[in-house]
Simulated assay, not measured.
Amino acid sequence: MSISREERMRRARSVRLHVIIALFSLLALIALNAVLSSHYPWWLWVLMVWMPLIAGHTAWSMGLFDRNKEGS
Rank of each mutant, 00 (worst) to 15 (best):
S4K: 01
V19I: 15
H18V: 09
S37N: 14
W60Q: 02
S4H: 02
L23F: 15
I54D: 00
P52E: 06
Y40I: 05
S14T: 10
H39K: 10
F65N: 04
M62N: 03
W50S: 11
R67L: 07
P52K: 03
R5D: 10
H18S: 14
M62E: 02
H18T: 14
I3Q: 06
G63R: 03
T58W: 12
R67C: 03
M9A: 13
V46T: 07
V46M: 05
P41I: 01
S2N: 07
P52N: 05
W45Q: 01
P52Y: 03
L26N: 06
T58I: 03
L17M: 14
D66P: 05
W43V: 00
L17H: 12
A55N: 06
M51N: 09
W43D: 00
W60A: 07
W42R: 06
G71Q: 12
A34F: 08
L17D: 12
L47F: 14
M48K: 10
E7F: 05
A31R: 02
A12K: 10
R13M: 11
I3C: 01
K69W: 13
L32P: 00
R5H: 07
L23T: 09
E70T: 11
I30H: 01
V35F: 11
L36E: 06
S72M: 06
G71T: 12
R16E: 15
V15G: 02
I30R: 05
E7L: 15
N33Y: 00
H39A: 10
I3H: 01
E6K: 04
W45V: 14
P41F: 05
L27A: 14
